[in-house]
């Protein structure tokens, strides 16, 4: 096994899972981790570590490693063995942002991604200069305005306006895309009046030659 595979980093719903496979000295493991983190420092900085598994290490060495991760990279250690607890809401807010921001939402680093959990109802507005992710439905009359992209993990029935500040390659994606209106930068489109054949599958809307195109993904 190669050295860089001997320490595995994995993003989970609860946070980072770090798994140490080989039998190494504590310092060696630290070096490997350091090397990985330096590849993408902003990604790991302040991240939550949900699980730290290392068969080879003693409980004391593990504690020491956790402490080091916290001190060196500001990581929040939340592994079961550690017993350290962070508040539920902190976990929700901090962690996915960290992971997703650098994973697939490269372009809005400066603003980050706003996560909204729950149904957006009529009259509610979400405004954010970066990307917006809704974990829930967006009902008719609700509105999302984002400087970047909009992703709805649910049914989008309201108004979504992506790229409000001129980002013309912004997209709107939803598990089910049935918006009253879609806007990307200054282009506006609406669903056709005959609402018979609406897709129930995930779709993504992008701007192509000043026209909003919707395609499955």
């Amino acid at each position: 096994m190669e050295e860089n595979k001997s320490v595995e980093f994995k993003g989970t719903g609860q946070g980072l899972a770090i798994r140490v496979h080989l039998y190494h000295e504590n310092q060696q493991i630290k070096d490997i981790i350091q090397q990985r983190i330096n590849e993408n420092p902003s990604f790991y900085k302040g991240a939550t570590v949900a699980d730290l598994t290392c068969e080879s290490l003693s409980e004391t060495s593990k504690k020491e490693l956790e402490q080091w991760l916290a001190d060196e990279y500001g990581m929040i250690i939340n592994s079961k063995s550690n017993g350290a607890r962070i508040k539920q809401d902190e976990e929700k807010n901090i962690l996915p942002r960290q992971i997703l921001k650098n994973d697939s939402f490269e372009e809005n680093k400066e603003y980050g991604t706003k996560f909204v959990e729950g149904t957006l109802r009529s009259g509610q507005i979400i405004e954010h200069p970066g990307d917006v992710v809704i974990i829930g439905d967006v009902n008719p009359g609700a509105e999302i305005s984002a400087g970047g992209n909009i992703v709805v993990m649910g049914i989008l029935r309201g108004i979504a306006h992506a790229g409000i500040h001129g980002k013309t390659d912004a997209f709107v994606a939803a598990s089910v895309l049935q918006p009253t209106q879609l806007r990307i930068h200054q282009t506006i489109t609406r669903s056709p009046d005959d609402v018979l054949d609406r897709s129930k599958n995930p779709e993504i809307a992008k701007l192509k030659d000043q026209i909003i195109c919707v395609e499955p993904f």
Binding site: G123, P140, G141, T180, Q181, I188, R190, D193
Partner: peptide
């Protein structure tokens, strides 16, 4: 204001800018 409805009764809700 705040509880608009006339648009849906007329079937014009998706044209509002």
């Amino acid at each position: 204001i705040g509880l608009r409805n006339l648009d849906v009764v007329l079937g014009l809700e998706n044209r509002i800018v």
